[in-house]
Amino acid sequence: MLEVVKNIPIDYYVYLSSLLFCIGVFGVLIRRNAIVVLMCVELMLNAVNLLLAAFSTYLSDAQGQILVFFIMVVAAAEAAVGLGILVMIFRNTKTTDIYSLDNLKF
């Protein structure tokens, strides 16, 4: 049995990744710069990745880590497209403040 599995309860990873996830949520909520908001989303994804990797190791099952790869794929695609959109928005509005993007209202 691995050293880490013996010494660290799985709960610790759960708490850590919950904490990171909530920090990500918090960041999304308080930041107005769209790029930073996207970064916070990346943080949330990473929190989930960490948990998946932990379970993968604890269960000695490679599927969890494979799933992490796929999440990375999605995150990379999301970052590419999201940043492309942001550049487009900035070109039109000269700002990345998400408060300026409230035309979809009323």
Partner: peptide, 13 residues
């Protein structure tokens, strides 16, 4: 309709 203020953070909250 004031609920739909177009602010994404508000929706996220």
């Amino acid at each position: 309709r004031k609920l739909q203020n177009g602010n994404i953070e508000y929706y996220l909250l």
